[in-house]
Simulated scan of single mutants.
Amino acid sequence: MTHHTKQWKEAEVKRLEKLAKAHTVVAVANLDKFPANMYGSLRVKLHGKAILTMSKRKIIQRALTNAGIDAQLKDNMKGSSAVLFSNVNPFELYAIVKQSYGKVAAKAGDIAPEDITIPAGDTGMAPGPALSDLKSAGLNVRVQGATIAIMEDKVVAHKGEAIAAPVAAVLGKLNIKPMKLRLNIASALEGKQLYHAAVLDIDEEEMFMRFVKAEQSAFNLAVNAGIYNAKSTPVIVGKAFREAKAVALESNFLTEETVGEILAKAERIANELKSHIKEDAQ
């Protein structure tokens, strides 16, 4: 090891150690398959919320050890790694990183992240071998003038399916990049609490719907059990009023709320009797 290299490593360890001590959350991420051209854009998106940095895995581990970071966090570092330092909670940090992805071309055998559709239109390709390639991907094509046209939209791979080799080849030729790649946070440490990716990866829409359902269930329980709170009280009182009024009307019990309806009912009965008396008299 040269003197220059040793100095760089020591300075790098001190830099990362300082960052770890200055932030409440430290997360490690896997860089496998992460596009290098996305690194800069992700750092920009994280500006003000987190610091993303790459270094040699052993240097990162040494720096985290010096900072007193839980050994489990370091153990989650596999292969090429990055480390994030932040003062936002781990769930928010994970969500920000999760939403930052890049699109790349598909390879044969890749699993479609969603339905992949090739739209109808002019391909710009000249007739020839390309015509057979497009047909092998299941496309309805036709030569129109000097180029090949796709006559109708076609779903060439459904979500969760492996992408066939002919389809992958055609997607590449049409410059359709269906595969989403992002930085994969393996785990994050906040204080003494370690969160793994499986815990951090929350579907926000599903979670929101769960809260809505739970709130509705709690409201229904409160109304049916007669538990009074800001939301249930108006409904419970309204229900009690309607039930009491129904009993009063049934028993002809006169109150300010029932007198009009009871008298109207009495009038209808009287008119009915009156009509029968006239018929009998005739």
Rank of each mutant, 00 (worst) to 15 (best):
S275V: 04
K135P: 00
K245P: 01
G121N: 05
A11D: 14
A266G: 10
V212R: 12
S81H: 00
E152V: 08
V259W: 02
I59H: 04
V247S: 13
R142S: 14
A108M: 05
S232D: 06
T123I: 07
S275Q: 11
E152K: 15
E243R: 03
Y228N: 07
A264T: 11
G40Q: 11
T123F: 12
N30Y: 01
L194Q: 05
P119G: 03
S41W: 11
V155Y: 10
S217R: 12
A240V: 15
I227D: 08
A198D: 13
E10I: 03
A50Q: 07
P178L: 07
E17Y: 00
M151P: 08
E206Q: 15
E250Q: 13
G226P: 08
P119E: 06
F211I: 08
P127Q: 03
S251Y: 14
L194N: 01
D133E: 15
L131A: 10
R142I: 13
R43H: 01
M1E: 06
I277W: 07
V223F: 08
H4Y: 09
G48E: 05
M179Y: 02
T123M: 10
I236T: 05
E114P: 00
S187I: 05
S132K: 15
S41L: 12
V25T: 06
L254A: 09
K103D: 11
F241K: 13
N229P: 08
R268L: 10
G124A: 11
M179E: 06
I111V: 15
S132R: 15
V237N: 10
P234K: 08
V88M: 14
L139C: 02
V83C: 04
A222D: 15
E243L: 10
G68V: 02
I148R: 01
I269H: 09
A105V: 09
V199F: 05
A281T: 08
A270W: 06
F34W: 05
L93Y: 04
L263T: 09
Q216A: 14
K173W: 03
A105E: 10
S136L: 12
D115P: 01
G172W: 03
N76W: 08
D280F: 12
A157E: 04
I185C: 02
V156L: 04
N252I: 06
R142C: 00
P166A: 05
P234Q: 06
S86Q: 00
N76P: 00
E190L: 07
M1K: 07
G109T: 04
A27C: 00
V155N: 12
